[in-house]
Amino acid sequence: MNEKEELIRFVEHIVKNGSGYNTEKSLKELRDIMVRNGASAEIAQWLDGMIDEWARAFRRRDSRSDKRRQGKNRPYEPDEMLAIKTVAGNVENPSDFL
């Protein structure tokens, strides 16, 4: 394997084993080390691209799972609706709660 193939393999290892934003941090750390130790502009750019791409992909995935977690697209359950109505009935701007 040449230098770049080795780096790709290593980045794949980091991504495969990382979790959440840790991976972005790990890749940034790797980039800093490589640049500090005299990596070529091409390698630095490639790593920058990897970090951006990975961060974008992660945020997309993250925002989808957030929505799922928050249940934004599902209808309210009857007891939730009652709770909302009760709170809303006791405040000046009920729309704040809806």
Binding site: F10, H13, I14, N17, G18, N22, T23, S26, L30, I33
Partner: peptide, 8 residues
Amino acid sequence: YASSSGRM
């Protein structure tokens, strides 16, 4: 070295 917790 990439540690198992993601540290370099």
